[in-house]
Simulated scan of single mutants.
Amino acid sequence: MTATDRQATGATWLRRNRQVVAPVLFLLPGLLFFLVYVLLPVAQSVQISFFRWDGLGEPDYVGLANYRELAGDRAFEVSVINNVKWLLLYLLAIPGGLFIALFLNQTVTGIRLYKSLFFFPFVISQVVVGLVFTWFYDPTFGLLNAILGAVGLGPVNVLGDPALATYGIIVAGLWPQVAYCMILYLTGLNAVDPEQVEAARLDGAKGWRMLWYVILPQLRPATFIAFVVTIIGALRSFDLISVMTNGGPFGSTRVLSFYMFEKALGEYGFRMGYGAAIAVVLFLIMLVFIAYFLWSMWRQERGA
């Protein structure tokens, strides 16, 4: 076969399979980035978790010793409990974002101003959010205690109380997270089929029945994204804790991501292997939740 024949054969094959080749070529850069910047670091973290290593010297293989140490680590236990609190309470951002989106989807005077005000928290840096709420909670000049004093209640030191500090940080995190879920639902509401809505109205559906049986099923993709993003945000909550309490008081606000940083790079020394073991546990928790929601979405789509 001559070079010309080979070129003609290759061109014919490309024309015949262009519907398969074109998507693969478009996806290839993203897949390469995902491999290099996600999968390889995950594999390296798993590998490092089996070593005792300070990040500079020669790694010392210790097998499952880091994981056995986690089982008896009280600080790790507190971090897991706090992550569960973050997970459960952070999910309030989803219904909150949904109802704000339903309100902002109305055609009323000044709705663009309202949208801008509700959207504002999403564009603020998490560090700024942390500083704003630190001032808000301040027991001496904070707005919270000014409000409580106006109704006859005593001052509350939210970030200084081990029983309240975690919940105070979660409230701060919910402020921008609700705005993000609101944006997702506003986008989803633009894709709602008006014919289905009109048909439901003719059948007498309104209020909660309209929302539950007509609107929410069409918002399922937005709900899935909101769940995944909210769960990931709850599990990797680091910046707000670092800004507002730095893990205190008395380590009561630590979560897994913050404790991982403390062990690997923070004041507790450069224990890269132990920090990697914490990271692996955090990754597995994320993986379980995301896999569950993917399976739920697949089952619903298959049933439909």
Score class of each variant (00 low, 15 high):
77 E>C: 14
190 N>V: 11
301 E>A: 09
119 F>C: 06
82 N>I: 02
33 F>Y: 12
301 E>L: 09
256 L>P: 00
253 T>C: 07
295 W>S: 13
116 S>M: 14
169 I>R: 01
77 E>N: 15
86 W>D: 01
87 L>K: 01
30 G>W: 14
116 S>T: 12
231 I>P: 00
207 G>I: 10
120 F>S: 12
290 I>W: 00
162 P>N: 13
260 M>A: 05
233 G>H: 03
25 L>I: 13
22 A>E: 14
225 I>N: 00
248 G>N: 09
274 Y>A: 03
75 A>E: 01
296 S>A: 15
132 V>I: 12
71 A>V: 09
11 A>R: 14
21 V>I: 09
225 I>Y: 02
181 C>D: 01
84 V>E: 02
170 I>Q: 02
254 R>M: 10
114 Y>V: 03
82 N>F: 06
144 L>M: 09
41 P>I: 03
173 G>H: 02
208 W>I: 14
177 Q>F: 06
224 F>R: 08
87 L>Q: 05
101 A>Q: 03
107 T>A: 10
32 L>Q: 07
118 F>A: 06
192 V>C: 08
77 E>R: 12
181 C>H: 05
203 D>S: 09
237 S>N: 08
19 Q>M: 15
105 N>W: 08
190 N>L: 13
142 G>K: 01
119 F>D: 10
75 A>L: 15
14 L>C: 02
131 L>M: 07
299 R>N: 15
41 P>F: 04
205 A>F: 07
102 L>E: 14
300 Q>Y: 14
42 V>W: 12
220 R>S: 15
144 L>H: 00
152 G>M: 12
171 V>W: 04
221 P>T: 04
73 D>G: 01
58 E>Y: 05
42 V>R: 04
302 R>Q: 13
128 V>C: 07
78 V>F: 01
60 D>L: 09
223 T>P: 06
153 L>M: 07
259 Y>D: 02
139 P>V: 05
162 P>G: 15
202 L>K: 01
216 L>S: 14
42 V>I: 15
229 V>E: 04
296 S>F: 12
86 W>V: 02
159 L>Q: 06
251 G>E: 13
111 I>R: 15
227 F>Q: 11
22 A>D: 11
285 I>N: 00
166 T>K: 00
285 I>Y: 02
269 G>Y: 06
129 V>D: 07
157 N>V: 07
20 V>A: 10
177 Q>R: 05
41 P>M: 11
293 F>T: 06
12 T>G: 08
79 S>E: 03
13 W>S: 06
300 Q>D: 15
251 G>S: 13
29 P>D: 11
17 N>F: 09
242 S>W: 11
135 W>L: 12
135 W>Y: 08
162 P>I: 11
88 L>D: 14
25 L>S: 10
197 V>T: 11
133 F>A: 03
55 G>E: 06
139 P>G: 08
240 L>W: 00
242 S>G: 06
71 A>D: 15
249 P>E: 06
52 R>G: 10
291 A>S: 11
41 P>E: 02
228 V>W: 05
89 L>D: 05
221 P>N: 11
165 A>F: 04
44 Q>P: 07
170 I>H: 00
95 P>S: 15
183 I>H: 01
166 T>L: 05
91 L>I: 09
205 A>S: 15
168 G>Q: 05
212 W>E: 10
183 I>C: 04
168 G>A: 12
210 M>I: 10
30 G>D: 07
126 Q>F: 11
59 P>K: 03
